[in-house]
């Protein structure tokens, strides 16, 4: 019966697209309809894009920092997801407190998403507040002065531009802070 498909072009096209659309629709269109949690923001999650449009300067700075993070391809080497793997929750944790795993409701406003695929450097999903401003300034100027053995490039054109530097640091400090989980006194701003 299959031999029909290699003689009749129209039948072939219909079958090839039919097979494709079964899986295609079930795995792309249907999941967000079925799983409302993908689009339901966590209580208190800030929509920085909307806030920035309404004139919030802090949000504008974070959005600018985010665009720098996208522009420089930081996301090729840093993931932003604490996976459902025990070691991830410890590595993303703070001192002796384990980090909660990343859930879709924390990323509802992330556009483009920055989950990433490769960890040349460490995951950044909970990095916000772990290091102070001066640490980040030094680190962006010369990563190896703080982390010997690091392979991160220096970013002099950002460090030498005060506006970009402040924006990028503001963005990094905002990461992973929607969930309240760190001990009250162990938190650097």
């Amino acid at each position: 019966m299959w031999s029909k498909f290699d003689r009749n072009g129209g039948l072939f096209i219909a079958a090839a697209l039919g097979f494709f659309f079964i899986g295609g629709l079930i795995t792309t269109v249907e999941p967000p309809l079925l799983d409302k949690s993908w689009a339901t923001p966590l209580a208190g999650l800030k929509d920085y894009a909307t806030l920035a449009k309404s004139g919030d300067t802090g949000a504008q700075q974070i959005m600018q920092g985010r665009s720098i993070y996208v522009r420089e391809g930081c996301w090729y080497c840093h993931t932003q997801q604490t996976r459902t793997i025990e070691a991830d929750t410890i590595r993303s944790g703070w001192r002796d407190v384990r980090s909660p795993v990343s859930t879709p409701d924390e990323f509802v406003y992330d556009k483009p998403h920055m989950f990433g695929t490769r960890r040349v450097g460490p995951d950044l999903s909970r990095v916000g507040g772990k290091y102070d401003r001066q640490w980040h300034v030094t680190h962006f100027r010369d990563p190896r002065s703080l982390v010997p053995g690091s392979v991160m490039p220096p970013f002099p054109w950002i460090v030498n531009d005060p506006q970009e530097l402040d924006a990028l640091i503001a963005y990094v400090q905002s990461l992973g802070r929607a969930k309240e989980w760190r001990p009250a006194h162990d938190y650097e701003q």
């Binding site: 295609g24 795995t27 792309t28 999941p31 967000p32 993908w38 689009a39 879709p104 990323f107 509802v108 406003y109 992330d110 556009k111 483009p112 998403h113 989950f115």
Partner: peptide, 12 residues
């Protein structure tokens, strides 16, 4: 799209 929905389309 954004967030997890976007990641899903991206990986598709």
């Amino acid at each position: 799209t954004a967030g997890t929905s976007q990641a899903n389309l991206n990986w598709f």
